[in-house]
Nucleic acid binder design. Sequence first.
DNA 1: GAAGATATTGACCAGTCTGGTCTATGATGT
DNA 2: ACATCATAGACCAGACTGGTCAATATCTTC
Lengths: 225, 225
Amino acid sequence: MNIINLKYEEAIPITEAFKNLEPTKRKRIINAALKEFAEKDFDHASTNSIVKNAGIGKGMLFYYFQNKRDLYLYLIDYCLMLNKREYLDLIDENEPDFIERLKRASRIKWKLLQDNPDVLNFLGTVFLKDDDQLSDEVRQKIEEVTQYGWEKIYKNINLSLFREDIDVEKAFKLIQWAIAGYEQEMKYRLHNQTLSSIDYEPYFKEFFGYLDVLKRSFYTKEEER
Amino acid sequence: MNIINLKYEEAIPITEAFKNLEPTKRKRIINAALKEFAEKDFDHASTNSIVKNAGIGKGMLFYYFQNKRDLYLYLIDYCLMLNKREYLDLIDENEPDFIERLKRASRIKWKLLQDNPDVLNFLGTVFLKDDDQLSDEVRQKIEEVTQYGWEKIYKNINLSLFREDIDVEKAFKLIQWAIAGYEQEMKYRLHNQTLSSIDYEPYFKEFFGYLDVLKRSFYTKEEER
DNA sequence: GAAGATATTGACCAGTCTGGTCTATGATGT
DNA sequence: ACATCATAGACCAGACTGGTCAATATCTTC
């Protein structure tokens, strides 16, 4: 089985009512819920807070979902799907230059982040909790998507771009830590500005500057190839 | 004023009772409180949870501290002091090699982390909250310690170790992101093991391996110096 | 416009947890 | 015996919890 062709099927049955909801409203609910679950753990996440932020009456939430847990499971499923469809699927696995591939991937990720600010935060909390309340089905799906992402990043990388005296595995890690570090820094720098109405291009420029340093450091010089 | 000689004075008045407490018990309380405040924000941190984890009666906490907020402020003060005395003060500002200086610093930091696992986590949450409930005095003290740490890291670094074609400022960042990345990875890898009873030396070895890659990449070769 | 189905609200429920108080008792020293 | 300090935990009013439900508003179909 070639996992790179991973299909995505709904695992969590959700009510017709919610499925047929007008998309903007559905998204309002999803976003409010994602934000709440991203900030607090399951027990402390408040359905009251969710309905308030979503701008719906308390009753509606339990009209759409049977209970808090079902909502949570649906969100996991939804985010896994989105993460696959709007991010992983779009990574170009034919780009053999590791840094270049990740550079492009980060533009895609950024797009996802702008459209759905809390999806990745939420998924992050899910990944590092080994919640024994999750069904095997969901747990397995998490596993699959993780594996799929791993392949999209590492498959068909041209290792000969790297200098001979450099441990490629370590370089991989260092590059990813650099990206994570820059992300973190941006989150900190922009942490009180409204995400829209900012011109991000200068930040990408700056970010690519860091990647260039890494290329110059880790890759063999052009003229030596 | 040479801030590098920053003195440390108690800002938060604390009760005699708590000051005179037998150290092991005092530490039990501090640690329980740190853990709680590191995990939850001020409002959601539970004093009940703290007394339970500290193994004291509810009444005692409010015998030692006037209220929750005073406890919180005391913890900030305590952690700033510890961070200075047990970490920043011990960084060797005469080591001109940036990576080498940080390498040694990380051993010291690790020691602090073993003795007081939650101090840095807690301080982290304090740093990124711009809590308007903090007194100017505390806020200024945070500022001072931050500045002090910054100087301990960057002062007297020999920039000529770096390759000419590499932006040193960017290299600084990349090195620190690498360290943060490894820290994160270790936290994830060890996240369910008991912190004691582990031989950390292999991990330091591995960590230093990453730093060596960075040295090889960012620094001019020995024979060219 | 009647009838029936569907969508929506928020008051309400019992229960849990909150920061903080206070009384009762234990310990210690004189 | 007395006074001072240390300690525990029952107790408080109030906030908040996930979830329910009866009351209505809105829509669809005839």
